[in-house]
């Protein structure tokens, strides 16, 4: 289990290869990559800057992974989240979950991502032609996390 927050880009293929190496119990690996879009709320986005709360961010994501491990069989999990200034087409976040079978890997990956969106302390600021603005939290993200409570 690993959580990494940094400015530099990540290599999905290399991270997946590292995860399955030396662990022959793994039968399924699910991954999610979040990418910077060029349009948000109808305005074009030139760049985006991500801020986080060093220490609490890593702690919050580790707790989310622990919750996923309590619900599904998770053999390994990795979350990488970038901070600093990013531009459209850049990768922002990576979640990789390894399990014995695909059902647990898919579910745990989606669960981790839904709770990362609503619980992990990151904030986005966009630069648009209208100027800089902080991105507002979305109700849809809260709803996505809520549905796991059943």
């Amino acid at each position: 289990m690993s959580v990494r927050i940094h400015e530099q880009d990540f290599d999905v293929s290399a991270e997946m290869a590292a995860m399955r190496k030396d662990n022959p119990k793994i039968g399924a690996i699910a991954s999610f990559v979040g990418v910077v879009r060029d349009i948000n709320e109808g305005d074009s986005v030139a760049t985006m800057t991500l801020e986080h709360y060093p220490g609490m961010t890593e702690k919050a994501i580790t707790e989310i992974i622990d919750q996923a491990r309590g619900r599904w069989e998770v053999l390994d999990a990795l979350v990488i989240h970038r901070v600093g200034t990013l531009k459209p087409t850049d990768q922002i976040v990576l979640v990789i979950v390894a399990s014995t079978h695909r059902g647990d890997a898919f579910a745990a990956c989606e669960f981790i991502m839904d709770f990362l969106k609503t619980r992990a302390p990151f904030w986005k600021k966009e630069i648009t032609p209208q100027g800089a603005r902080w991105v507002d939290a979305r109700v849809a993200d809260d709803q996505a996390a809520e549905r796991w409570k059943t």
Binding site: M113, L116, K117, A120, P121, K124, A137
Partner: peptide, 10 residues
């Protein structure tokens, strides 16, 4: 103690 707006990562 930290205060902050609702989070918007991911």
């Amino acid at each position: 103690v930290a205060f902050f707006p609702p989070v918007t990562g991911g």
